[in-house]
Write a protein that binds this DNA or RNA. Structure first.
Lengths: 357, 357
DNA sequence: CTGAAAGCGCTAACAG
DNA sequence: CTGTTAGCGCTTTCAG
């Protein structure tokens, strides 16, 4: 026999009915131990493996869709990994989609694949609320980094993260911070900016906002550096690490020393943040755990669990590294860097001493 | 009607038989244009969409498995993206698996999912040759970054990349280079080391090899820096950018200036390489194109095409940045950095002037 | 070119 | 606990 063995083959070999074989594999316990043993033995001998394909009858594809906006963004690496591992443990497989920060592509793909999956994980979705809600009516959906009523969501504690960052900055003497925004369609971006305004109000500092960076990359951040200088803020908080790093590089290029003239804080604590010089102060979230939590909740929903109406908020912590420092006496003058050789020399000397953690 | 419409619904609405609807969707041309139009209209009206689920009969799942060793590695980001986009264009979906550099996990996962996909893309697989070959007998398989007879493969031109790097280094006066190795089970690692030995022989320089870094990350490279110093080579070529960056950071930490005392070359030109200071000289490969090419070939094979027996070799180019420089008169003395304040000051001053590209 | 009918591999009633 | 039977939605002979 050259085709893959089916339950019928196994049934025949084990001397039982096909449905019994089906039960033996699909719902352990509904078959006498002894019979089950015979079945498994026969299956083993024939090399039978339960098909991952959905029996048309049961819609159990054991597959989840994971939609990310940009695979290339290291931020998603850990989320995907966490999701993947959790899925694997729960016996699920991940269908991957990256949508290039494009809501239309996201809709299309999702619609096309929706039938094939048991649940959907939307990460930083750029789709409209209503589109997501519509989808959530058809299938279990969990959204990451986005809050919308009626759909279970998992968020990082943006408010606290921003708050910590601002406190850190004020402790260093800063009283004006510029926010370098991310994509306009990003819920997270809105949440961070809002949190920053609130924190600024409470702590009595001034804030400005520049951007958006619709593609929140190093490159985009780099291009915003000049604007940062013109705001004459002594501190910046960026939408994410990539943008923050771009800003650091841009400022450096303009001769504005970080952190001597301007302090920079990122968000996400991706591996990038330890590579840049000076290493980036950033808000860390448990990315891998987020991915895993999302999958676990999704699978629970598939299993019939009723998700909590309240979003799950993941804790954050501020990782202080060397891109933030005491506010210097004089602000950088607008549109003009003030860096000179002596300041860069001291920075370099410091860099040799402290090194990376 | 609340369930998804089926071909039967469409058939009824269009006044034809279900089989005709099936044909209209599955094999264009086998149905009279006029009839097809009626069918599509009815389908449209009912909101019928051809199911992504495999009809039991046709094994056409329109799904491909993409297996990577570590999603977190930015190297894969572009490959995945290229693969994803090509797949999307060809109407395929990607099932993702990351195997944590673990051959066993890779085998398990693959076996479990094999039935559900029409083809498999193995990226930098850690599985044994025989395991891969066995799989290739059951399904179309394309391997990336690995060469083995009988299985179509897509490789980067490691030999040329290494050769270029070595030439670059010799032009700068270096006559001894240390290779910081990657994972032992990596075919690519072997290929690069071999290429290095050959190039070294032809160009008459000395080579050493340290490692392996089974998890080829920044961290691993960092840990190898001290060993690099003890080899007293003035140049190092690392398995990949991450390791190279780790080496740079480690050397810097040890007070060994890059590139003044030691030049460092990476491989892959990932986005990391532009973040590190000094920016990394590295061998670039068209990652996204690789992913796309792999998928296109895989789909062609699924369609019955006979793959070429010869591997497809993707071109490389050396991206010269600032981590490589003229060999200094004096080598670093073994186990002891020689960096002093003046050298770091000059390095820093330089960094302000040139900035990133 | 199109209809009728027979399954693909598996699960889910429903009886025993 | 297990066998029988009837499909899931679609494709594919096989006849018209």
């Amino acid at each position: 026999m050259d085709r893959r063995p089916t339950i019928y083959d196994v049934a025949q070999a084990a001397g039982v009915a096909a449905s019994t074989v089906s039960r033996a594999f699909a719902r352990p316990g509904r078959v006498k131990a002894e019979t089950a043993r015979r079945i498994f033995e026969a299956a083993e001998a024939l090399g039978y493996r339960t098909t991952a394909l959905p029996g048309l009858v049961s819609r159990r594809t054991r597959t989840l869709a994971l939609v990310v906006t940009d695979i290339t963004n290291p931020f998603y690496g850990d989320i995907i990994r966490g999701a993947h591992e959790a899925a694997h443990e729960l016996g699920y497989t991940l269908l991957l989609s990256h949508t290039q920060e494009d809501a239309q592509l996201e809709r299309d793909w999702t619609e096309r694949e929706l039938t094939a999956v048991e649940g959907v994980l939307l990460t930083s979705s750029r789709m409209s609320d209503s589109a997501i809600r519509m989808m959530a009516k058809q299938k279990p959906v969990v959204v990451l980094n986005r809050r919308l009523p009626e759909v279970p969501s998992i968020l990082v504690d943006n408010a606290r993260g921003i708050r910590r960052a601002v406190e850190h900055l004020t402790e260093l003497g800063h009283d004006a911070v510029t926010y370098v925004a991310g994509p306009e369609s990003s819920w997270t971006d809105g949440a961070r900016w809002l949190a920053l305004r609130e924190a600024a109000h409470e702590l009595d500092i001034r804030v400005r906002r520049i951007g958006p960076c619709n593609n929140p990359t190093v490159h985009a951040g780099f291009g915003r550096a000049r604007e940062v200088v013109t705001t004459s803020s002594t501190a910046v908080i960026a939408y994410n690490d990539a943008v923050a790093i771009g800003v650091v590089k841009g400022l450096t290029r303009l001769g504005v020393p970080v952190p001597e003239a301007v302090s920079v804080v990122g968000f996400d604590n991706t591996l990038l943040s330890e590579i840049i010089e000076p290493e980036l102060t950033t808000v860390a979230a448990p990315l891998q755990a987020m991915g895993a939590t999302a999958v676990k909740n999704l699978v629970a929903m598939i299993g019939g669990a009723v998700p909590s109406r309240e979003p799950i908020i993941m804790p954050v912590r501020l990782v202080v590294r060397r891109s933030t420092g005491q506010r210097s006496r004089n602000r950088v003058s607008p549109a003009l860097g003030t860096r000179n050789v002596s300041s860069s020399a001291s920075a370099a000397a410091r860099s040799t001493e402290s090194g990376s953690r």
